[in-house]
Write a protein that binds this DNA or RNA. Sequence first.
DNA 1: GTTGAAACCTCAGATCC
DNA 2: GGATCTGAGGTTTCAAC
Lengths: 153, 153
Amino acid sequence: MTLDRIDREILSLLQEDGRMTNVELAERVGLTAPPCLRRVRALEQAGVIRGYHAECDAAQLGFPITVFAMVSLRSQAEHDLEAFEAHVAAIPEIRECHMLNGEIDFILKIVASDLESFQRILTTKLTPAPNVASVKSSLTIRTAKSMVGVPIE
Amino acid sequence: MTLDRIDREILSLLQEDGRMTNVELAERVGLTAPPCLRRVRALEQAGVIRGYHAECDAAQLGFPITVFAMVSLRSQAEHDLEAFEAHVAAIPEIRECHMLNGEIDFILKIVASDLESFQRILTTKLTPAPNVASVKSSLTIRTAKSMVGVPIE
DNA sequence: GTTGAAACCTCAGATCC
DNA sequence: GGATCTGAGGTTTCAAC
């Protein structure tokens, strides 16, 4: 799908405020409501917009701890990589799992209610997983920047 | 703010689908529309809901490359940490910046349009920043899991 | 103090140009 | 892309529990 200037403006605005009404969106990008809505639907259809999400305060929801874990596996055969990803997919506290090049095979973002809870996840769910060679984890002290998505325009 | 069972259900649903209509939300949590809307507004007011965002496909927007960079600084004095965070805040391709404990001081999530562009950000904006001792970066091969927010319920 | 019913008003979505 | 229309949804008011 080719995106013109107006499409990009729409995406930028919805990335900022996903609940903006279509009429406000239309005004901001210089269209009337119907063509604006058609563009939004087309962007959703094409998968450019993958969904809309409320951003919640993790701490107020009982997850003040965020940890990054760097995982190395013993085998990097595709089957073993997929097995690890499937294992991780079933652990709700692991929010992100990215496969990397280099020495570290995966970086995980994990949330927890406290350090004890994190330690339990680490020692009962992550470290004993099949094929895991090493896990190095670092606590997040603070998050200075947390932008959703990509820079548009 | 204390969250009861219904508040948590609302948050869980809006985290999944941030554009769900209030009437559908109300039905799903077993309320009528007005009290449901009041709860949502209260959650927004209290900062439990920090915002709503469209999730866009980075590749289709011209950012197929995601890199994690581990940064160590020469000085960890608070003033120097803040200076680095301010430096990072001004670089739009750096989407996240988390301060960690341990040897690595910061982990950054960076998006780029191609490897050359990433290399340019690295060598012209990040490595030469004041106080930077070392930057180790890893390309993301693929993202197996990417959940927004925290597990609710 | 929170819910629910009713009224109002704005918006989403379809149709046609 | 824009104009018009209709039904659905958002929002406020107020009574009731």
